[in-house]
Design a protein around this nucleic acid. Structure first.
Lengths: 337, 337
DNA sequence: TTGTAAGCGTTATCAG
DNA sequence: CTGATAACGCTTACAA
């Protein structure tokens, strides 16, 4: 019985060379698609590689080239739908380009924690980092600490400096608000995301812009924490004051909790109050009433991040993506008053 | 202006040695907590390390030790709540133990794709793999191909061979079924997960066990695909036949879609039909009606997987965990008939 | 087109 | 307790 510790040594480039009757360097050339190599030699080498089931040792390669062919994901989200979907996009795009992906979840968003995380990723020799840390402070810390490798931040203020990208949150939020307005609502509240979150700010701005352009009164936003539980309590609270006819919640989870709170308070959605959310999570189309919301393509965002990052790493022209479109999904929860 | 390409060489163990006035080997010993080393020497070295902001090159270390201090996650799920939550647990536990984590998403569950994925991970020198591939076939392929490194599979049949673990799906599903029975239902349908999924089988078994023990009739399960959309169409279909009073859906997403389908067909939940789900996703407590379901601690599952894997890697005694408890959450969607 | 030599930054082995 | 020396598997020079 063989245990893990007696695992045989894997074939190296030299074993391949010996079997193929060439120098190890020639094998290396084949591996790296070096232009000048005789076809028959190449064939011999490839044969030997196949026979031995040889696979290059990535650590050795990383050591000598000081590139790891690995991308880091620095994430500071707890498993919400958006970021999670983006991560999937990042991984797929990275693997497609031959990069592996090392993920690191930030426990806290203190400068020290962020610094440690970046250092850790840098120790791991990642060639670049995709930062999925939608909190404003993370962004600032990152800018301040002069990270010694290429990085791209996702879901941050758009257009800030060419290394961040996101769907057009402001436009989406504005569209949501305008949808409510077009349904005849004029007293529209906003259940916002947490203070520190960039997306929360953008969505709030879209809300304010929408109302301002329609010359409607704005209300001080209620600060939530993205959770359905918070939405629920907000709903109970809001049911006591009846100075509004519609609410735009900064994400679907809060919107669904909100509808629950209203329901428990005897308010009917959309009959008494209209609600619209943001994100279009998979259940949005199925809750009762079905939730009007704003759809965005999170995986595509991740894919774009990778393309930008790789361009930076390779010193190529960094592609310019326009802001990713958001799509309004009108459903039952927002109706004419 | 300095570009990435002119990045200065990072300090190496030899730079530290020179500054501390010792040999590079001594530095290495300090780094690895070698027992026999004079405290003052150690202090000098640590000083030099701090001054130079030296950090060990992981690739070099991986090359010489042929361990990477990296764990692989092989995932074959599309971003569902459960697996995603478990992944977070895996990452946290791994980082805590000083391991980094490389994630690889399987596009297809063909034997070739699985083989490639494992090979890729093995190229990356990961020290072990956590497999999050709940499909039966993946499990079989893995067993057949004799992976050359330690691995643990999550969410597979419990007790099959000590390297797989999961919450007790069967017990949870049985509890859900018994809950419906205790509410007075005797004609209970099951909206199952896809054929190939291990958890789908377990939950179905729990359903069958529950009914059998109560001497109630079983119905041929409806095979779903975990999505809310499928649940919706199933609901529309089922509304046409009225030979049941309750449905146990294999996950919350399908349960929520199902309720939507019933609603659109004029059936009221729980008045006309009771529904219970599985997973306790964050919105379950807030949809209308609030969804009765079975809760399980996905992150803990991930943490346990890491502990088992690390024990294997380190050749320690592998900890024995009992099956993870599931908890019935009785809410509005399942009521007495 | 191919081969030889050197070195990447670390740990392991053996002296002292 | 500490220091030489030799790997680890690969790529980048430079030579042939």
């Amino acid at each position: 019985m063989s245990t893990a510790s007696e695992r045989a040594r894997l074939p190296s480039i030299r074993d391949v060379a010996r079997l193929a009757g060439v120098s190890h360097q020639t094998v290396s050339r084949v591996l790296n698609d070096h232009p000048s190599i005789r076809p028959e030699t190449k064939a011999k080498v490839l044969d030997a590689i196949a026979v031995l089931d040889y696979r290059p040792n990535l650590a050795a390669r990383a050591l000598v080239t000081s590139k790891s062919n690995m991308l880091g994901i620095l994430s500071a989200t707890i498993g919400e739908f958006g970021p999670t979907s983006s991560i999937a996009g990042i991984e797929d795009a990275a693997r497609e380009e031959g990069y592996s992906v090392s993920t690191l979840n930030l426990a806290a968003t203190t400068p020290e924690a962020i610094g440690n995380a970046v250092r850790q990723l840098s120790r791991e020799q990642v060639d670049g980092i995709v930062v999925l840390a939608p909190q404003v402070r993370v962004f600032h810390v990152l800018r301040g600490m002069s990270v010694d490798m290429p990085f791209v931040t996702l879901q941050t203020a758009s257009g800030s400096d060419g290394v961040s990208l996101s769907a057009d949150q402001v436009a989406g939020a504005k569209a949501a608000t305008e949808h409510l307005i077009s349904l005849g609502h004029s007293d529209i509240l906003h259940l916002a995301g947490p203070q520190d979150w960039i997306e929360a700010e953008s969505r709030m701005r879209g809300y304010l812009d929408g109302l301002r352009e329609a010359d409607l009164p704005t209300f001080p936003p209620i600060r939530g924490d993205w959770t359905a539980d918070f939405g629920y309590f907000a709903g109970k609270e809001l049911a006591l004051r009846r100075d509004f006819t519609a609410v735009f919640a900064a994400n679907d989870l809060m919107a669904i909790g909100l509808m629950h709170g209203f329901r428990d308070s005897g308010l009917r959605v959309p009959h008494d109050v209209s609600v619209i959310g943001f994100d279009d999570i998979p259940v949005a189309a199925h809750v009762a009433p079905t939730l009007s919301t704003v759809h965005q393509d999170f995986p595509e965002l991740g894919r774009r991040a990778v393309r930008i990052l790789l361009a930076q790493i390779r010193g190529e022209q960094v592609p310019e993506f326009g802001p990713l479109q958001t799509i309004l999904r009108a459903r039952e929860s927002a109706a004419a008053r």
